[in-house]
Amino acid sequence: MKSEHKNAIVADKIATVILYCIAGFFLLLLAGFTAYIIVKGIMAYQPGIFSFERTGIGVELFNTVYLVLISLIISVPIGVGAGIYMAEYAKAGKVTNYLRICIETLSSLPSIVIGLFGYLVFIYMTGSKYNLFAGALAVSILSLPLLTTVTEDAIRAVPSIYKEGSLAVGATHWQTIVQICLPVATPRIITGVILAAGRGFGEAAALLYTAGMSSNVNLNIWNPFDPMSLLCPFRPGDTLALHIWALKTESMTPNADQIANFSAAVLLVLIFAFSLGSRLLGARLDRKMSGK
């Protein structure tokens, strides 16, 4: 009896140490990668690298942010709407189960498949050239399942006492969802949006045949309807991730490696800044609601 107890304590200690080791290993790995990318990026810095000319990555940086923004504008309302439907309206049954299988399948499709689907539907069938908007649509398809599931979980996690309190003063189901459930669920939904945006920032395969691998803009044109304008979403545009890939595989420029390394660091910082910003926003909303 006594020794059994001792064994349990030893086992507990060993398990703790092992878990710490695994966690530490991954933390180290992550820190190593990050440091490697950042250091290589800094070393590759050269004046004018942010320029919007051919030698700089200004256009690619802009494209990346622009494409992610457009895709969020498309995917967040649809994903959140679908999540609300799944949490609040979908009745348990065959149709809902089928829908759930569809969402799960969609979430595990390789992004190149989505890219080719995007090419077929948004480029080939519409007869248009590669363009940022088509890329944004492809990325939206990629992030929709995630946004839907996160929203559904977030809405389901809203304490039922809030919902009951709202219905008890004569609010309708819809009023309750919009004015009580959604605000309470927002911090969690924001986490989903960060993840979705992360997919957009890092995506390459889905953009290959939708947004295209090059940009051709004239910085003197500011009319967003002109396909040569930087602001036009219906022009071909390569994002940073794709740019890195292109530079590393088939570029003729002599300092392609340098630019790729620097781009990688910029992309990393961009994603970090976006996550941090969204999290701060979420924390602020949270604080406002809890009155701390």
Partner: peptide, 12 residues
């Protein structure tokens, strides 16, 4: 109207 067992003011 209804008042519940656990006070449930809305987070506002």
């Amino acid at each position: 109207g209804m008042v519940f067992q656990k006070p449930n003011p809305f987070p506002m």
